[in-house]
Design a protein around this nucleic acid. Structure first.
Lengths: 193, 193
DNA sequence: CTATTTTCTTAATATACCTTAAGTTTTTCT
DNA sequence: AGAAAAACTTAAGGTATATTAAGAAAATAG
């Protein structure tokens, strides 16, 4: 399966694993296909899997009291996407995880991941490192949104996620940046002049 | 040492440890006293300790390009404070950690903590849980700042951190909320009416 | 390839929040 | 207690961003 090759390659970028490790990983990560707009995780469900994106594009978002969407995170090939808090604490998810394009993910159940940790201890390290980067990007995002103007945040977004930006509707970029689509439109107009 | 009692009690709220574990912890966590406004960690240094607040109050903040302060986190008794990214990745800190009152902390060096993990494996769990809560509060804060008005954020802050609010100057609350002291003053005036 | 749906733009008006500057109150230090 | 420093308030005018509403453009599905 080509999908699993992607995952293996992704893991090998951080830790060393051997052929029998690979076999186990391939066996325990299950492939799942989603159509555009299909929802992988609903608020209220418990996120019981770790999810690796093998193909496609996802977003996680929540709805506030005014039924307004706020996008927390995007993910494309080789990224992980989840409601991490729900997964870690086994409490109901607060966020939607939705396919923005038709997509394929590789998922491992929490119980199966425990087996992986037992058999391939270096995978603990792998996920700890992933957890750290999740924390860091979140922190950078928080700081960024506190000290920068929307235009600057947009410029940063383009620099950092230009590939994603080309695959998602503009109103989702606005939602990620915390501004209205109309205002993003105005920013873009101003920028080209 | 009373300070260490606080730490032990704090640890016991999450995991079970025995008397010899306690001895080791007391031996490896070093007490340090700071005066009001004294800085515990400067940007550029590597955060090489985990820091437990036994007495007093701290803030972590960074300076943006306009030399504007932005407060990321406060901490009082029984909290941990750090530049977690610097600690985890052994890269130079981006933030200041400063005592807001005269304070006492208990610090353990990264190397000593490795010893703790070896001798008291359940402490790995303890710190993993702490790491999770750090992630979660950060996530809640990010979401909150995206979807709420400054007044609502202030009300939430009061509900959540009223003890802290009573110990810090108001301009620090403003900085945490991401608004100017003048605007917070206006919000407060409006609220009492 | 056309109809339908989704996304993007424009513009006017409104609001949340900032900037500056000055004066007042509170806290800290000696 | 008194002087100095730090923190808080007020107010006027400004800027960033939201809201509403409508139409135009682009994408998708049949």
């Amino acid at each position: 399966m080509q999908e699993h090759d992607l995952l293996i390659h992704h893991i090998k970028q951080l830790v060393s694993i051997n052929d029998s490790d690979i076999d186990l990983i391939i066996k325990l990560f299950k492939s799942k296909t989603l159509e555009r707009k299909e929802i992988l995780l609903h608020p209220g469900e418990i996120a019981s899997h770790m999810t690796f994106i093998a193909k496609g594009c996802f977003r996680s978002y929540y709805l506030d009291d005014n039924v307004q969407e706020h996008i927390l995170q995007f993910g494309i090939e080789n990224w992980w996407i989840n409601d991490l808090y729900s997964y870690l604490t086994k409490t109901p998810a607060k966020y939607f995880v939705q396919a923005v394009e038709s997509s394929t993910v590789l998922q491992i159940h929490q119980d199966a991941l425990e087996i992986v940790f037992k058999e391939i201890p270096v995978m603990e390290r792998f996920f700890r490192l992933k957890m750290q980067s999740a924390y860091v990007s979140l922190q950078e995002r928080t700081i960024n949104s506190m000290s920068q103007t929307a235009e600057q945040r947009y410029i940063d977004f383009l620099a950092r996620y230009r590939e994603i930006e080309q695959r998602i509707p503009q109103y989702m970029v606005a939602s990620y940046l915390g501004i209205t689509p109309e205002f993003l439109s105005a920013i873009r107009k101003k920028m080209v002049l």
